[in-house]
Design a protein around this nucleic acid. Structure first.
Lengths: 135, 135
DNA sequence: CCAACTGTATTACTGAACTAGCACAGTAGG
DNA sequence: CCTACTGTGCTAGTTCAGTAATACAGTTGG
């Protein structure tokens, strides 16, 4: 579970943590029913705010990945990523819709927008927007 | 040129104005070399801040759509949308890259991301997120 | 019950995007 | 030159997402 959240990567810490938890479930490092680290201990280990962990957990619960029990702890959900296509996709669609709306407002045609997305999805270029350079 | 900027549409006013100018050029309502309305008069007519018009003009100049001449006015650029694929596309690509980065951080696969975009690009209507109507 | 854990809720701080107010600088015509 | 236009620049206020600080509430084991 130990990983280093990168605050300057442009990707919010809570999203990085969510992805990490999902990945751990995928690889079997965390199994259904297993208890996750508490909010406070994990926050201390990652040197981030407990509230940030809480937000990640809350979102993960909302996606059906984990289950939160007040006072008891956080546990990997039974069917884990079965619900992935329900909430994560739904949240994603909102973001996608907003982005497309803006591109259209800038005068780009749907064809051009599609080309941009294909280009980005094709080459994992990993834009060096903040943290740094590739060398 | 008269249009009604919608402040509650989620799309920034300066982007709406930019699109409007581009559209006027496309339809021939504004022709190459022709002078655009001044920043202040236009702002007053649209009941928005002159600075917002100025920002739209500045962006349009940066995209090569119009040409600004200090003290003289704003004029439709000669080759107008010839440079569209240079700057607008470039700005768009940044937005697209950021969105995709976030979707990936949420654990969505490239295939799923692609599906979301296709769905949005296909069905124009979709989510009534804010203003709802257009008339 | 009670103490030490667990997650929850409220509020505040920060940075970025957008809009606005107002002072500054260049241009054209008298 | 001078006035009335034009665009430009700087600063402030608003909103929102993300993060943080702190107080609250439920659970478990003694």
């Amino acid at each position: 579970m130990l990983f280093r959240p990168n605050p300057s990567s442009g990707v919010p810490i809570y999203l990085q943590l969510m992805e990490q938890v999902k990945h751990s479930i995928e690889t079997g490092a965390l199994r259904p029913g297993e208890q996750l680290p508490g909010i406070r201990p994990l926050a201390e280990e990652l040197v981030i705010n407990p509230n940030t962990v809480a937000k990640a957990y809350r979102e993960l619960e909302h996606e059906g990945v984990i289950e939160l029990r007040h006072g008891a702890g956080a546990f990997v959900s039974g069917s884990a990523r079965a619900k992935k296509e329900t909430d994560a996709m739904k949240a994603g669609q909102t973001a996608v819709a907003a982005t497309i709306e803006r591109l259209r407002a800038r005068g780009l045609s749907d064809e051009e927008i599609r080309r941009l997305f294909e280009a980005e999805l094709a080459g994992h270029s990993a834009l060096p927007k903040t943290g740094g350079h590739r060398d």
